[in-house]
Design a protein around this nucleic acid. Structure first.
Lengths: 197, 197
DNA sequence: CAGGTTCTCTACCAAGTGGTAGACGGACGC
DNA sequence: GCGTCCGTCTACCACTTGGTAGAGAACCTG
């Protein structure tokens, strides 16, 4: 049976381990063991730990770009419905694979260069969202506000929910899938209420 | 001159270093150097790294409990004003000392026991907030909703903003103090709009 | 002064870290 | 057959980690 290529399996385990436990806390050896291979094989595919981290971030960026782009292109014309779609889209990967957005937690602790690289890939999406919000606000179909502020706030909330389920547990909230979904729906309701013209 | 006690200075540096860079990423030696003392002195005051982490979490809990309790007791009767005060209160320590709430990021990676201990200290506050929301909803002074849901959502947003300024930078938002304040104010506006009866 | 307590120090340890050098074995084209 | 990649391996390196043992200085109290 043609197993999945070692490189992919390494990348896969790295996303989960880095996301759940933090980049610095996870050793190459641990990743290797999870894959069922020796550490030196990991270093064969990724010449250094930093290179592995970079590859992991690229994976995340790929997933986010695909998902959000699709949501932005949603056919519905109503801006409220469209915003709804983007929120749901961002939550998709986060709920299916918590470690993915869990990596967001690592951004402040990684090399500036790596972060800058990720940012340059996401920036166009953010700009598109901001421009869209602005357009609809001018048209009067959304309440007037600083569109960048709204985007940043929504982003912060989504990452706050998606990347900190343990923190939510601390305030007595269930971190399971149903709990996250209810939270997401509430957020959507909030946004509708706040942005309706 | 009677310097501040070594123990306090260690605790102080530990809060910052753990908060900004992560518990696993910071070594006892690094903390010791920041204080201007040898690693073994740190181990004298805190018999193990885990003990130091526990002490740090206690510090955080102390600060949060004081600040939030004061805000809940705010004299104003209007629930919207009161909620406003709590949001501002939670943001206070976060803005003055980002590392404090930055520690929230670590919760999912720490010993369950340590997290449970922190949780048991914060839980009463959360319950008080939830109970208050419920009361005002029943009185009809707030829009009907699941109070626990509202609390969790607000909490997620606050931590999302306060603990992930770097992530916000990724979407093109300024992480400086003014930027955080504007974001906080926008959040307060959102909450008012969404909770007004 | 003596005797104990409090605090920080030097010296050391076993275990684990990211990374290098190079051997081994199997699959391939010739 | 034979050389040549490719992928994984063993062996090793210098360095850092959390933690232990115990010396020694500075301080009290008698």
């Amino acid at each position: 049976m043609p197993e999945r290529p070692t490189r992919d399996r390494i990348l896969d385990e790295a996303v989960d381990l880095f996301g759940f436990r933090g980049v610095e806390a996870v050793s190459l050896d641990e990743i290797a063991r999870a894959v069922g291979v020796r550490k030196q094989s990991v270093l064969y595919w990724f010449p250094s730990k930093e290179a592995l981290v970079a590859a992991v971030l690229d994976t995340v960026a790929d997933e986010l770009v695909v998902v959000i782009t699709a949501a932005i292109r949603a056919s519905d014309d109503d801006p409220l419905v469209r915003i709804d779609a983007v929120i749901r889209a961002v939550f998709g990967p986060a709920v299916r694979r918590p470690a993915l957005l869990g990596l967001v937690r690592e951004l402040g602790r990684l090399d500036r260069e790596l972060v800058e690289r990720l940012r340059s890939r996401i920036a166009p999406l953010v700009e598109a969202c901001v421009a869209y919000l602005e357009l609809e606000m001018e048209r009067g179909r959304l309440r007037r506000a600083d569109p960048r502020l709204v985007a940043a706030l929504a982003y912060a909330t989504v990452t706050g929910i998606a990347t900190e389920p343990e923190a939510l547990e601390t305030v007595g909230w269930s971190r399971d899938l149903a709990g996250l979904r209810r939270l997401r729906d509430e957020l959507r309701g909030f946004l509708r209420a706040a942005l309706a013209p």
